[in-house]
Design a protein around this nucleic acid. Structure first.
Length: 137
DNA sequence: GCCAACGTTGGC
DNA sequence: GCCAACGTTGGC
């Protein structure tokens, strides 16, 4: 089981949109590092959904329901997408500020490589986030 | 709206 | 292969 974090601009596609859709294909990723992260995802892996730009916080948990396959929205190039399904919202949103202040979360990719839109999360970071956000799976 | 950080493009 | 110019992301 691996853990991940995916960023989205809520004005484009929000956590609430995912809850409504239940399942969505995560298309439009055009960054090789992010693409490679998606290719490493396995069915059943869990994903934090993070809102960038506005709110800047972790909103909810989703799971991978379909592993990487070609991104049909890509007119050229070798791009992939995965399907994720909403699992549940976090108990309390985790603000970026909070992550930056938390001594256990300093190594999160959100802090160290903030621009990467699909990021790995360690088991320790994942569990810390569940504690901080008062979330039970 | 600004701007730093980063990624991509293209001329040489 | 280098690097300047440019575009994008995303925090503030």
């Amino acid at each position: 089981m691996n853990y991940w974090l995916m960023k989205t601009e809520p004005s484009t596609y929000s956590w609430d949109d995912l809850v409504t859709d239940k399942i969505t294909c995560w298309d439009g990723v055009r960054n090789y590092q992010a693409r490679n992260m998606m290719r490493a995802m396995k069915k059943g892996d869990l994903v934090f959904v993070y809102h960038s730009v506005k709110q800047t916080s972790i909103k909810g948990i989703a799971k991978v329901v379909k592993e990487a396959y070609p991104d049909s929205t890509a007119l050229k190039g070798d791009w992939s997408m995965v399907d994720i399904q909403a699992v549940k919202p976090v108990g309390k949103e985790i603000a970026l500020q909070q992550i930056k202040k938390d001594p256990f979360l300093q190594e999160m990719t959100l802090v160290t490589h903030s621009r990467l839109s699909v990021q790995p999360v360690t088991k320790e970071q994942w569990e810390r986030c569940l504690v901080v956000s008062e979330t039970k799976i």
